[in-house]
């Protein structure tokens, strides 16, 4: 009888070992493969994106020679922007200190007049929807922004009305800013992109 029990135990151990090997295999394959792909497609890496302060841009957006991560990112995002050969699209979801932008806070976006043919700054919620507001104000462009005497501009992102270039954020929750620069420096060419000074995003107050 003890011999039979011993044999059974031995067989059970073999089965458990095989199952644990299978579990490790499937775990590594599924979790590692899917999560790493999801991360590279959603957030990108230094190979596909470039960060300038709080702003992030996908270097090969819309290009015919775009890498698979960039293609997958924009297929999922459902956006249709101009190629980076012509326009740069910079996205900021954090302020200059790295804290997530939120409509409960007020922000000051300050920058030099951007060296480009045309540019615009738009505030969206985190799903890319415009934020409804009674003023019907969603963005500022190089044509509509009021410049300071020293050729800088300040755009205030706040829930309540502010003087100057005010972008209402309502109760949108998490915010995303999109800066579109038409025929500015090419973000794929690192040196030039870094030379371009993009606006800073400073948190003024939160409530």
């Amino acid at each position: 009888m003890p011999f039979v029990l011993h044999q059974l135990r031995k067989k059970a151990l073999i089965v458990i070992n095989r199952l644990s090997d299978l579990a490790i295999f499937l775990g590594v394959v599924l979790i590692g493969g899917l999560i790493s792909s999801w991360y590279m497609v959603s957030a990108g890496s230094s190979l596909t994106t470039r960060s300038i302060g709080p702003w992030v841009t996908w270097m090969a957006e819309g290009r015919s020679d775009a890498d698979p991560y960039t293609r997958a990112h924009f297929a999922r995002a459902g956006t249709l922007n101009l190629s980076t050969e012509l326009a740069g699209t910079y996205i900021a979801s954090h302020d200059s200190e790295g804290i997530r932008l939120h409509s409960s806070c007020e922000y000051s976006i300050k920058g030099q007049e951007i060296d480009a043919r045309w540019w615009s700054i738009t505030a969206f919620d985190d799903k890319g929807r415009l934020i409804p507001n009674p003023a019907g104000r969603y963005s500022f462009t190089s044509d509509t922004v009021t410049l300071e005497p020293d050729n800088t501009f300040i755009v205030t992102l706040a829930r309540d009305a502010r003087s100057g270039n005010w972008l209402p954020t309502g109760g949108a929750g998490r915010l995303t800013l999109v800066l579109t620069v038409l025929e500015g420096p090419d973000p794929a060419i690192g040196g030039e992109a870094e030379a371009m000074s993009l606006p800073s995003i400073k948190r003024v107050a939160c409530r």
Partner: peptide, 22 residues
């Protein structure tokens, strides 16, 4: 598992544009 993970990573990334409905 690491090899299979790499293959799944590549396949998932390449097929996103083909199957994305958005």
């Amino acid at each position: 598992a690491l090899c299979a993970m790499g293959i799944l990573h590549i396949l998932t990334t390449l097929t996103v544009p083909l199957f994305s409905v958005t």
